[in-house]
């Protein structure tokens, strides 16, 4: 391997090491320690200045107590399951709404595409928090949506949307939509039109051509978009706490309570480690499967 290739490979690995692996190890370390009334609020702390002896005494004090604790209360698995469910439904909704938008963008005249792309990205110029807050104004009982619907005469009494799961789905779908649209658009834009023409020449209807050619060829975009929406949604905290009310149970909220109400950093870290495992294992399995399929295809 020559030096240049090595240099090119270093940055991504360095990035992962410093910004993923090291923080993860710190969290893992805290998850194995015990709660204490101190700064920071756990013990033991690693005394690197004591050298090897410091490290061995540190290691001897660690245990898996906090992980076994998570199995004693049904709150945790209920929160994990409910987060997975919310994330899965929200991802599906985002896909159903995002795909037609991406498709429309790809079908648009080339001189329009840059503008359309801009319009999808534009909301990012405003703070995420402000955008979620404005949804509170829209969805509230006296909010704009209800005022509009009452004025049109569709409803007689205001709909209660804010502080319900519906509001959470609206918030998530709205916030993560660009992450779904952009990768799908990227694959659709590259789609070879001649394939569709060939299908039509051979007597395939437009609709079946869409399902038989366009959708399978945009599969990588669909998968990338779904991951980009699904993964951050599971740990989402801001949207459910602002729009969801107290009945929406999500793991992000449980994490918050462990940190802020119980001041129990070790248990909070254990919750975070388990969350990561829940996310990483299916992704690895999925990638394996993809690789196998690709190899089989070749």
């Amino acid at each position: 391997m020559n030096i240049r290739r090595l240099l090119i490979m270093v940055p991504p690995y360095l990035w992962l090491l410093l910004l993923f692996l090291v923080p993860f190890l710190i969290v893992l370390k805290i998850s194995l320690s015990d709660i204490a009334l101190a700064i920071p609020p756990y013990t033991p702390t690693l005394e690197i200045s004591e050298g090897w002896r410091g490290i061995t005494t540190f290691l001897s004090k660690l245990d898996f107590e906090n992980f076994t604790f998570l199995t004693t209360d049904d709150l945790y698995w209920k929160a994990y399951l409910s987060s997975l469910q919310i994330a899965a439904i929200a991802t599906l909704l985002t896909l159903l709404l995002g795909y037609p938008i991406a498709y429309g963008m790809a079908q648009a005249a080339p001189e329009w595409r840059a503008t359309l792309m801009m319009l999808v990205i534009l909301p990012f110029w405003t703070s995420f928090l402000i955008r979620v807050y404005s949804w509170m104004g829209i969805l509230a009982n006296e909010g704009y949506l209800n005022q509009l619907l009452l004025w049109i005469g569709v409803i007689d009494t205001p709909l209660t949307i804010l502080n319900t799961p519906v509001a959470v789905y609206i918030g998530i779908v709205y916030t993560y939509m660009p992450f779904m649209i952009l990768p799908i658009y990227a694959t659709l834009e590259k789609l070879d039109e001649s394939l569709l023409e060939a299908a039509e020449d051979l007597g395939c209807s437009r609709i079946s051509a869409f399902w038989l050619i366009t959708v399978p060829l945009s599969r990588s975009g669909i998968i990338a978009g779904s991951f980009l929406v699904f993964i951050p949604t599971i740990g989402e905290f801001v949207i459910p706490s602002l729009l969801g009310g107290s009945r929406t149970l999500m793991i992000g909220k449980v994490l918050w309570e462990e940190f802020f109400n119980n001041r129990d950093w070790p248990v909070a870290s254990a919750v975070a480690v388990v969350l990561l495992l829940i996310l990483i294992i299916p992704i690895i399995l999925f990638q394996r499967n993809q690789q196998k399929q690709q190899e089989a295809g070749q």
């Binding site: 709660i35 009334l37 209360d73 009945r247 149970l249 449980v254 109400n261 119980n262 001041r263 129990d264």
Partner: peptide, 19 residues
């Protein structure tokens, strides 16, 4: 104390979310 605090927080979560 830490143990009682956990009971209180857990109870509060149950009160708020019904879980």
């Amino acid at each position: 104390g830490a143990k009682v605090q956990r009971v209180v927080t857990r109870l509060w979560t149950r009160i708020k979310s019904g879980t």
